[in-house]
Simulated scan of single mutants.
Amino acid sequence: MMARDQGIFSIDNPWPKIGWGMAVGVLVVAAVLGFGVLGRYQQNDSNLDLWNAICRGLGVTSDNGPEAETQPALHTTTRIAWTRGTLDQVAAGKREHGAFIALNCSACHGQGGVSTSTLIPTLAGMDAAVVYKQLDDYRSGKRLWGVMGAMAKALSPQDSADVAAYFADQLDGLPEIGSNRLPESGRSLREADPARRLVYAGDPQRGIPPCSACHGPGGYKIGAPALQGQQAAYIERQLASFAQGMRENDIFEQMRVIAKQLTPDEMRAVAAFYGGRAPKAESMAVR
């Protein structure tokens, strides 16, 4: 007992306390420098305050700002969803009332919806769902075009269904969509004509599906306009608008993604291919 009291373990020996004190001091200085001083500085950015520097040093975030901030409005490409209710409203369109509304459309889209301008689309024979969707996109501002925006805002959803039914029933315009809706055979990636190759086979290497899968001939997707017999210059301009992001009312951005992959020559070739296709004789029958 006496030996311990007189050795390094003596109760009165100050060195253990000094050692522990120095260790604690080093830890405190290291924490202050690491978390409070050095941790505040960021390369190519403003310095952090003490609290943010400590949190970053611990590997956690102290940013609770976004939680309290006002969230921006959800951006949607269209208000139309192809629910049973929407499809029923489109199918219930009244052609007689639609004919009266269409009198306001003939100045631009031509008599009965058959356009004579290369800059304005033909609506005669267009699927009613397509016309209904585009009118709602104009009305809601999802698709921008001054004249059409004003015209669409003057129409109710029922008016849109009525005029869509009228144009869908008109003759001498776009060919009728076939009932079987199967892609035409004999078209493949080995097709020499680039327009025919894009229309019937697409370009898998660039992630481009065939145009005919949605727009025909053969294939069809609800809400996708038929392009056979449409104004070639109009098709080309719309492809360019999608590619440049000027038009953005395509659901899931499908057309924007595809159009961005096309060269100007490919856009022109595809537009000429569809614009040069004359309506088939059998599609001219009274519907």
Rank of each mutant, 00 (worst) to 15 (best):
L103E: 06
A128W: 09
A201L: 03
F242D: 01
R237Q: 13
A213T: 04
L239F: 15
G59S: 13
G93R: 02
G146V: 06
D193V: 10
G25F: 09
Q111G: 09
R181M: 07
E191H: 05
D137P: 01
F273E: 00
G57T: 09
Q134E: 14
H109S: 02
L182H: 04
V131G: 02
G223C: 08
G7E: 07
K260E: 03
P225H: 02
Q261I: 08
P209E: 15
R84T: 14
I251W: 15
S160C: 12
Q42E: 05
I11H: 08
G173A: 06
D250N: 15
G113H: 00
L123G: 06
P16T: 08
G110I: 06
A23Y: 00
Q244I: 03
P72T: 11
G125T: 01
Q230Y: 13
D172P: 01
L58M: 13
L135A: 15
A154M: 10
V37H: 01
M22E: 03
Q231W: 04
E248Q: 11
E69P: 00
G141A: 05
V26F: 12
A102R: 12
A165F: 11
A224M: 13
A285G: 10
G245I: 12
A226Q: 07
L239I: 09
M126D: 00
S10I: 02
Q71H: 05
A124E: 02
A168L: 06
L103T: 15
G202D: 05
K142E: 13
G219V: 00
R237C: 02
R237Y: 14
L227Q: 04
A23M: 15
R190N: 06
R206P: 06
G245M: 12
C108V: 10
Q89A: 13
A168H: 11
V130A: 05
L182F: 12
L171Q: 03
E248F: 14
K221S: 15
V90D: 03
T76Y: 10
G219S: 04
H97D: 10
E248I: 07
L171D: 11
V257G: 08
